[in-house]
């Protein structure tokens, strides 16, 4: 029996973010949330491993200061057997260092496991640090940026995407893997799966349940400002009777701008 823990972040759906044009501030409070994309790939991969080897448990683990039940239910519908939710208002300002620490404590409490799967980076913060930090805290072999994964007995073989190469790496389990979106196409849960999920367990823990030391979740970085970039584009639409005419006008404009024929 293998146990796979998938670290699943509830992220801001960045495609639905609105910007206040006057202040260039993002309106994040009311923005919809969803399972961070890469984490959905990680979950899908865990479920596929279970389907392949026949017997395995897939647990998801989420840390958040706010409610995340909808996201956890979706994860259960996709195929997780059980969801762990570490929920505490004191996590409001945690950074990657604090998040990794809480995840590590939760994983220690869950106990035995063979694999921890993370996304390569999260949809909203896109920092790509938590998986590597977590591997370090749990003292696990780490294979990051994985596009293909196979589990054999007590080893994992994974293909990583680097800037200039694909690298195949082997490690003994337990190990920590971070996945890219290339790895699979996550399934969309059917109504049946959604109904079945309502019977599965969500275990909720607070900071106290994990003996979290507040000192250790203090942020080590400080976000000074977050502003939408200024976009000062001309937004000139070029129209004409036919393609040739449009093309002539566009060509002329580009030459006048001095951006072609240099």
């Amino acid at each position: 029996m293998k146990r796979i823990i998938v670290c699943l972040k509830q992220a801001v759906d960045v495609s639905q973010l609105k910007v206040d044009p006057a202040t260039r501030r993002l309106i994040t409070a009311s923005a919809p949330k969803k399972i961070s994309d890469f984490d959905k790939n990680a979950l899908e991969e865990a479920v596929r491993i279970r389907e392949k080897i026949g017997e395995a448990e897939v647990y998801t683990l989420t840390v958040s200061h706010e409610d995340a039940k909808a996201v956890l239910r979706e994860a259960l519908a996709i195929g997780a057997d059980k969801a762990y939710f570490v929920n505490d208002p004191s996590f409001q300002d945690v950074d990657t260092s604090g998040t990794a620490y809480v995840l590590a404590e939760a994983i220690k409490k869950i106990g035995e496991f063979d694999l921890v799967l993370c996304g390569e980076a999260s949809l909203d913060s896109f920092s790509g640090l938590v998986g590597s930090r977590l591997a370090e805290l749990l003292n696990l072999p780490l294979i990051a940026s994985v596009r293909r994964l196979t589990v054999e007995d007590n080893t994992v073989v994974a293909e990583r995407t680097l800037e200039d190469a694909y690298e195949t790496v082997k490690a003994k389990m337990p190990a920590l893997i971070t996945v890219t979106r290339e790895i699979n196409q996550p399934r969309i849960p059917s109504l049946m799966m959604i109904m079945k999920a309502s019977k599965k367990a969500i275990v909720t823990w607070t900071a106290t349940d994990l003996n979290i030391q507040q000192k250790k979740i203090g942020a080590k970085i400080e976000v000074v400002e977050v502003l939408a970039p200024k976009t000062e584009r001309k937004k000139i639409m070029i129209t004409g009777e036919n393609s040739a005419e449009i093309a002539e006008k566009l060509a002329k404009a580009l030459i006048q701008e001095g951006v072609v024929g240099r």
């Binding site: 070029i238 040739a244 566009l250 580009l254 030459i255």
Partner: peptide, 28 residues
């Protein structure tokens, strides 16, 4: 994409691109 563009053309790339290539060839 038109919101972040300086110049926008609403059209089929299969028509516009060859026409643009031709127009630039002539004008340059």
């Amino acid at each position: 994409i038109f919101e972040v563009a300086d110049y926008g053309v609403v059209g089929d790339l299969y028509e516009i691109l060859p026409a643009l290539t031709e127009a630039l060839r002539k004008q340059l």
